[in-house]
Design a protein around this nucleic acid. Structure first.
Lengths: 286, 286
DNA sequence: AGATTCCTTTGACCCAAGTCAGCTATCGTC
DNA sequence: GACGATAGCTGACTTGGGTCAAAGGAATCT
């Protein structure tokens, strides 16, 4: 059966069977939206900013605010000003809130338990395996690439991991320059649950040419097609900026990366800079 | 990772990523409920009864009626009296309705397509595989067993398939007696999407003993734990009826069934009837 | 110090989804 | 042909979930 048909079939099965169950399980009198919110707040140890919540749950600011008021009224959470920045406010679960959260956790676990209960040990293992695979691939297929300021926390984390990895791999160590202030450079990050999982940038390098920089894919995410997506995305950005050619350099030892570039239509070219860490140079016409 | 944790993780991934996508994709101006309804109506070739729709979508009669009115107003469906029974009404898609349905189908396929698009061929195959497995197991884990009159259509279909299978397997053919009128007998069916996938019954056989009859699991569903669930369920029914012992007979050639009984704690006993098709007899204390 | 921007809240809305009770037309049965 | 059951429809109502614009306080820039 082909991927699309299987996915559609699974989707139907899943929403019909589990979606319904979930609603009836997690709806403890409380509407589902409030429960989900409680999940997020309860899981955050030291409290969580209102803005962070908004990002995570992708809720309207006004709507979220109202939901928070409701949790406060029910005595499940307290919203207090952030000490560092008085505009911001931080949500913290009260004792009752933590209890309600624990209850939700329990219900959610019960639901899962009950779902796998009819299965034998072996089937459970098969299901676990299948779902773990599907989880990785679905996550990979749905991460959103978004532009990011290279000095923002998520970008810094991505670069830190990129550098650490190269440093570990290169015999001579790796000491990169700084991205911060390049005019016209655009950086892109892919995040999953708030953590960066892939990163890359493109910066103008002459009239017609753009250079791709700092391509990185988190190691747990390799083999899920993120690299080629990022590459295509960066090429598209370069195209939009009016460039007709992209170049990039890399270390000879990064064989997966080189394979990726070749698959994407990049051809080897002469050295075009004096980057001491690069021995392989590629270019592609857009 | 254990099954429950994986399932919970997957569930979050799935509802967050795909649920959201789906809503934005299938919501073509039309509310989701109407779209789902259109899906059902468009898929039914010769029209579908209002009651059938209600069963399938599990909607309130009043609500469904209103939704249908809306489809009629939009020119997507016509609701006409059933010729055979004037109380009933039948919903048929108009040309415009079929078009809208095709459009929905297309969008749904596009969504799936887009979702797998970032994946490589190999990843797609892995995902397909994983989802097909998960689909079978989730379906199996969530089928509901419910009591059924052995003369009801679903029960008849189950028995027909049961008999056909035994007939094909037994060298001498198989010609069963009739279930219909046994006093105190209870039959149970497991249905998935309206089709029976497993069947079985339990009937009193003396003071303390009940007999399990007609245990059958559809062949596409074997190896998913349905058999043992059905068996446990029937034992529970026997227990509720005050029996302390269940017996059953089977053909020697049904090795999977025999393995199932043995795993469930059944022990071989002497022949207790003159069923010409049975050579193996089992009993279990409750 | 004043202007501007950022973050959150508040008020006023909107629509989808669903429930419930009562109604009407039809069917099957006596 | 009367009567109860069945099938579906209508009106009135509730709730959940969500949008939008304006407001207000706090930070930041110049």
């Amino acid at each position: 059966m082909d991927a699309v048909a299987t996915l559609r079939r699974f989707n139907r099965t899943y929403t019909q069977r589990i979606g319904v169950l979930e609603e009836s399980f997690l709806g403890t009198g409380r509407p589902l939206g409030v429960s989900r919110l409680l999940f997020e707040i309860g899981a955050a140890e030291g409290g969580i900013g209102v803005g962070d919540l908004r990002d995570r749950l992708d809720l309207d600011a006004g709507y979220l605010s109202r939901l928070l008021r409701r949790l406060e009224d029910d005595g499940l959470a307290r919203v207090v000003p952030d000490r560092a920045d008085g505009r911001r406010r931080v949500v913290r679960a009260t004792a009752a809130g933590r209890e309600a959260f624990a209850d939700l956790e329990q219900r959610s676990a019960d639901l899962a338990e009950r779902l796998v209960a009819p299965l034998t040990e072996r089937q459970r293992a098969r299901l676990t395996d299948a779902l773990a695979t599907a989880d990785l691939l679905v996550r990979a297929a749905t991460v959103r690439l978004r532009p990011i300021d290279p000095t923002a926390p998520a970008a810094r984390e991505a670069v830190r991991r990129y550098v650490a990895e190269l440093d570990a791999r290169f015999s001579g160590g790796f000491a990169p320059g700084d991205d911060a202030a390049e005019p016209g450079a655009v950086y892109v990050v892919a995040t999953s649950d708030g953590r960066p999982v892939a990163y890359g940038g493109v910066r103008p390098a002459g009239e017609e040419t753009a250079e791709i920089k700092r391509m990185w894919v988190g190691d747990a995410w390799r083999g899920a097609g993120l690299g080629s997506r990022m590459l295509r995305h960066l090429e598209e950005l370069a195209r939009q900026q009016g460039h007709r050619r992209v170049v990039l350099d890399t270390h000879r030892s990064l064989t997966e990366a080189i394979a990726l570039y070749e698959r994407a239509g990049y051809a080897p070219v002469e050295r075009y800079n004096d980057n001491p860490y690069a021995q392989a140079f590629f270019a592609k016409e857009l």
